[in-house]
């Protein structure tokens, strides 16, 4: 197991499918650092949702805009920061997808999944950047 940390920063184009330009590397290094598969699933899901939100809702697929992604993986902590060039949004304004009248809405679950699967999630004041962190889960008994 690699005891150091891995870091990478990229500017992604605002195109559908661009997330894989960083998530493949992220997944590889989570594996290198010995993260358990369930944690890797959680981090992958949260990173994917954050990047897709930035590309589609933040930058609105504008080819002139980039999505900045910064990743850090150590044996105990994984951090992903995603910032777009859009106007930002108020995450508190996203309705709870678990409410009866929202339960069958086809979208609006990404933020909920990020909150559930990560240890820490913080939006910047403008609402165009999100910090995602996960601490490695203790081994199951």
């Amino acid at each position: 197991m690699n005891s150091g940390s891995w870091q990478r920063e990229v500017d992604l184009p605002s195109e559908r499918g661009a997330s894989r330009l960083i998530t493949e590397d992220l997944l590889e290094h989570l594996g290198v650092h010995g993260w358990p598969p369930s944690d890797i699933f959680s981090i992958h899901l949260a990173a994917e949702e954050a990047i897709v939100n930035a590309i589609i809702h933040g930058n609105k697929l504008d080819p002139a805009k980039k999505v900045h992604v910064s990743c850090m993986v150590s044996p105990e902590l994984a951090r992903v920061e995603v910032t777009d060039e859009g106007p930002g949004f108020d995450p508190a304004s996203v309705p709870d997808c678990r409410l009866d009248d929202r339960l069958e809405a086809p979208n609006g679950r990404g933020v909920m999944l990020m909150r559930s699967f990560m240890t820490r999630i913080e939006y910047n004041a403008k609402g165009n950047g999100v910090l995602l962190e996960k601490r490695r889960s203790p081994p199951a008994d």
Partner: peptide
């Protein structure tokens, strides 16, 4: 092995 919330949206529309 993996699906995103966008895929969930398609499943919900299919259900409808």
């Amino acid at each position: 092995e993996f699906l995103s919330s966008a895929a969930l949206g398609k499943l919900i529309t299919l259900d409808r």
